[in-house]
Amino acid sequence: MKNILVTGGAGYIGSHTCLELLEAGFAVTAIDNLCNSSEESLQRVQKLTGKTLDFQKVDLLDIDGLRKVVASKKFDAVIHFAALKAVGESVAKPLLYYRNNITGTTNLLEAIGEAGIKNFVFSSSATVYGIPKSLPLTEDSDTPIHEVTNPYGRSKLMMEYVLRDWQAANPKVNVALLRYFNPVGAHASGEIGEDPNGIPNNLLPFVSQVAVGKRDELSVFGGDYETKDGTGVRDYIHVVDLAKGHLKAIDVLEKDPGVVVFNLGTGNGYSVLEIVKAFEKAAGKPIPYKVVDRRPGDIAACYADPAKAESELGWKAENGIEEMCADGWKWQSQNPDGYK
């Protein structure tokens, strides 16, 4: 049985990936500082799978605590989710993002290097592409750091550079850089899903909270983009499809490829208003919204060319926007207050 260390394992994508790992027969150790997640998610993962995992509350900035966990077992691979991820907050608090995301990653690499772990899957982001010069985005599209529009995205791109340099200095290690587009939805059981602290930073949790009556209306940031209806267009991917991509990445790293890069998206772009309409259908009720000013750091449109992931990872998104909204609504309606 392969042993996998998952950082940020109690978070939204982390918890869904822990579930898929357990279902596939992996042994899982999850670490998380619980600053924007809940241990309850992992309790539910264990209940759903009928299997146990090892949870350790550790902050990646705590290098001694991190070393202790990493050295406690012989891990076959690390999946690194742990990071702060709100675009707007990163604009307001850039030093917090650089300290947490970059220093946390270098601490992790030091610890796993000492332990001799050679396979590393990194949770990157489509934000590293900055303002797209053409769409869809391929893995060969430019990633000029001066064009990345917010500190969150820059921290992800910087971490990609750190990982490339680390691998170049340690040729026996392998790194998969997975550039996510926009994860949405929830596990089909409705037992685990996205549970943001405070006001949601992402579209679907906000729409969900409006639908369940926690918020009066949705704020649509920007109605004057050069898109089909003036609202931002994104490539939304079901979180379960995304989670499964990480298992495929572990398989690829077993072939000693060095550094590999994959877009994880569907290749379809949906506008904010198209998402609202699809969610209204899933929830069976109208979603009131108001168009407001654009958010700092946002771009007009972003969607993937997922062909490389299909041909080289053997991975393809299986769920469409209807499933994403239906599963997201099931989670929110069954858990109006999230994990609380």
Rank of each mutant, 00 (worst) to 15 (best):
Y270I: 03
F122D: 05
N33C: 06
G50S: 12
N33H: 06
P286G: 13
W329H: 14
L204T: 15
Y303L: 10
N197I: 09
G185M: 05
L60C: 02
L22N: 06
P132Q: 07
N3M: 15
I79W: 07
F55D: 05
S333H: 13
S311N: 10
V162W: 02
L5K: 09
V175Y: 04
R67C: 01
L204P: 03
E312D: 11
H238Q: 00
S208N: 15
H80W: 04
E323W: 09
R44M: 06
W315H: 12
A83N: 10
A115D: 13
A243G: 02
S15A: 15
G11Q: 13
L53P: 04
E191P: 03
Y97I: 00
V240T: 12
L109Y: 11
N202Q: 10
G14A: 12
N201I: 00
Y180D: 01
V239G: 02
R154Y: 11
P306L: 13
H146I: 15
S189H: 06
L203S: 07
P200S: 12
F81Y: 15
G153D: 07
S333K: 15
N174T: 01
G11W: 11
E114F: 14
E194W: 10
I237C: 05
G269V: 01
R215C: 00
F181D: 04
Q46E: 15
S208W: 07
K255R: 04
A278Q: 02
M158I: 12
I287Y: 14
S141R: 14
E23K: 15
T17E: 10
I117W: 09
H238I: 00
H187F: 05
D251G: 05
W166P: 10
Q209I: 00
G267V: 05
V252Y: 01
G65P: 05
T17F: 15
V69A: 05
P183G: 03
T149W: 14
E274P: 02
G269L: 03
A169Y: 13
Y225E: 08
D241H: 03
S72R: 13
T143L: 06
R99G: 07
K93V: 00
K308D: 03
